[in-house]
């Protein structure tokens, strides 16, 4: 088993996938805490559908897929926040409408251009082979940027998540912080999509967070736990998918996350019982 792993890690693409995956796991865990607590969990999901649509467009017109999707999704994230603030359509509905439209666009374009090709399929489910050395710099720069920006605004983001009205009254630039959060989510979703796929990337922003909220009572611990669980799930999932051919990376990571969640739920339930 170990031999097989060592052999696999001698391939460059495996190492690339591992590096990018670790970074993505950290990003999703950090942003997820805010998204879940703000009840914005759908934002990641919506944006992943948007990126699928834009990818299909990029492939048909031969644009650089990652860069094109990144720009489009950033714009859509920005607009989504605007819509949900200014109009009577609420945020959830706006996300569902926009993501549905882009998904439909993606499917239509791929049909017109001769069906799903292998590439588009890879984006749907993610692939361990997806990170080429030409993508690596962009992936690393973007994810590291997300982590740094998050760290710089950590205290502000907490205050806004905890009580938006108070923050506004205290003179904080609440809209700006919400925008930053949406843009960071957009970046994470687009980069993560290569590896994990559009279908499952958003659940990575939810699973580790929900697990960690069961354990943590303080914000700092919640964020740390979430990152810890997310990294654990990714690493175990990565190893599993290397060892078993029928286990795609995204599935393995989600399974591990699910098991972690169930185990934590089980033990917290027992603990509660004992207390009673």
């Amino acid at each position: 088993m170990i031999d097989k792993l060592i052999e696999l890690f001698s391939f460059e693409f495996v190492v690339y996938a591992f590096i990018v995956g670790i970074l993505i796991a950290v990003c999703t865990a950090l942003l997820g805490v805010e998204l879940v607590l703000k009840k914005y969990s759908m934002l990641g999901d919506g944006l992943s559908h948007v990126s699928f649509g834009t990818l299909a467009v990029a492939m048909v017109f031969n644009f650089a897929p990652l860069e094109f999707a990144l720009i489009c999704v950033l714009i859509v994230a920005f607009l989504l926040l605007r819509i949900s603030r200014n109009s009577k359509i609420n945020g959830d509905a706006a996300i569902a409408m926009v993501s549905g439209s882009f998904l439909a666009l993606g499917i239509f374009i791929s049909r017109v251009s001769g069906g799903f090709n292998q590439n588009l399929n890879d984006y749907m489910f993610g692939s361990i082979y997806a990170i080429k050395d030409s993508d690596l710099p962009l992936c690393i720069v973007m994810t590291v940027t997300v982590i740094i920006v998050y760290a710089l605004f950590y205290n502000k983001i907490f205050a806004v998540t905890f009580d938006e009205d108070f923050a506004k009254a205290a003179g904080a630039k609440v809209e700006l912080y919400n925008l930053i959060l949406a843009l960071l989510t957009a970046i994470t979703v687009v980069i993560g999509m290569k590896l994990i796929g559009t279908l499952l990337i958003s659940s990575l922003t939810v699973f580790p967070v929900v697990s960690s909220l069961k354990l943590a009572k303080r914000y700092k611990t919640a964020v740390c736990c979430s990152v810890g669980i997310s990294l654990f799930a990714f690493i175990v999932g990565f190893v599993l998918s290397c060892l078993y051919d029928n286990m795609p990376l995204s599935t393995a990571v989600i399974f591990v996350n699910l098991i972690v969640y169930l185990v934590i739920t089980f033990f917290t339930a027992i603990k509660k019982r004992k207390r009673i």
Binding site: L37, N155, F158, A159, D163, A169, L213, A216, R218, K220
Partner: peptide, 28 residues
């Protein structure tokens, strides 16, 4: 201006210690 909302409608399990909440007063 300091502001005290009527009640904070929060996620039941919002993780935040008293100290973290108090410090968040400096957000502006």
């Amino acid at each position: 201006i300091g502001y005290l909302p009527q009640r904070i409608n929060k996620h039941q399990s919002f993780p935040a210690s008293v100290k973290e909440v108090v410090l968040s007063g400096f957000v502006g």
